[in-house]
Nucleic acid binder design. Structure first.
Length: 292
DNA sequence: AAGCCCATCGGTCATGAGCT
DNA sequence: AGCTCATGACCGATGGGCTT
């Protein structure tokens, strides 16, 4: 945990592992410590530096130039660059560093600054999802303590809840869309964000949230008769038979259009029933759902 | 301007060893 | 056994600088 392999660094920075080895060899940067069996490993401080180097390198700085800089030079150079994408990546990196350091104060400060400047939608779509993608990568490979992930996702969740709270109350009408995550799926920031967008558009929603068993869906459905159902599948648990689950769901609510999103749907074994619409990423799903 | 040389960068391949 | 990692050799693309 919080100890990274060269592959982790590759995934998080986008620099190929071999290139990292070559840079280390040729320029002496990103020096790794080694296990007793000579395998490279990196800590949070190494990752922080690697992210900076990757950022500058992507921006066009030659590695020979970067490797000749000391930390202060690098920092002042980074501060000078005003390119939008560069700034965004920089903040994503800072969020990542704050997460590893469990510096919730700094994390919230960064998030608040961005929210104030860009608003909820832009913050979620460009900053938060970008950040969550990297966090997800670390989470899936056990590079992050669950507590570290929880601390920061709670902050994001709180911002969303506050934004929802501040929306004007809608007059009661037929609920249009039921949102939930299946049992075992606990990461509902994306779902809550879709909920926020729908509410903002004046749609009625029923938000069942994460970890919702089918019996509960049935119960709520019978009482509220939503026009649409939306669910997102994030993490694939070994025991979870997605196809069987989706077929079951489709059979339970044959007259309701069911929207499903999640990267796992790209696998060929998943087939959408006639009342089901698949979306391979959250952005597509979001756009389709708010257009309802 | 065109041609050439050379350094730099980053990619592939082969090989041997570690990991699960 | 099959994947992952480390290393070295080599190769092609690029670009700066120099000569013709």
């Amino acid at each position: 945990m919080n100890r990274f392999s060269i592959r982790d660094i590759e995934n998080l920075t986008g620099i190929k592992a071999h290139t990292i080895r070559i840079w280390e060899q040729r320029y002496g940067i990103m020096q790794a410590r080694r296990t007793v069996t000579n395998i490279r490993y990196y800590d949070a401080a190494d990752l922080k530096l690697a992210l900076r180097i990757a950022l500058l390198n992507n921006y066009g700085y030659k590695i020979s130039r970067i490797s000749s800089m000391n930390e202060q030079e690098m920092n002042s150079l980074i501060q000078k660059i005003t390119d939008k994408d560069f700034k965004l990546q920089l903040i994503v990196n800072e969020l990542l560093e704050a997460t590893l350091a469990m510096d919730t104060g700094h994390f919230e400060l960064l998030l608040n600054m961005y929210l104030k400047k860009h608003g909820m939608e832009h913050t979620m779509e460009s900053l938060v999802f970008n950040f969550l993608e990297k966090i997800g990568l670390m989470w899936m490979t056990d590079r992050l303590f669950p507590a570290q992930e929880h601390l920061v996702s709670n902050i994001i969740y709180r911002k969303l809840a506050l934004a929802i709270e501040q929306l004007p109350l809608q007059p009661a009408q037929t609920p249009e869309i039921l949102l939930f995550l299946p049992e075992g799926e606990i990461h509902d920031i994306g779902l809550q964000y879709v909920n926020y967008l729908l509410l903002k558009k004046g749609k009625q929603t029923i938000y069942l949230g994460p970890n919702a068993p089918l019996s509960e869906i049935q119960f709520v459905y019978d009482a509220k008769h939503p026009k649409y159902i939306y669910l997102h599948l994030t993490s694939i648990v070994e025991e979870f038979d997605g196809n069987k689950y989706l077929q079951q769901l489709s059979g339970m609510f044959p007259d309701t259009t069911i929207f499903v999103s999640g990267a796992m749907l790209t696998s060929r074994k998943y087939k959408a029933s006639s009342n089901m619409r698949f979306f391979y990423n959250l952005t597509e799903a979001r756009n389709a759902i708010i257009a309802l």
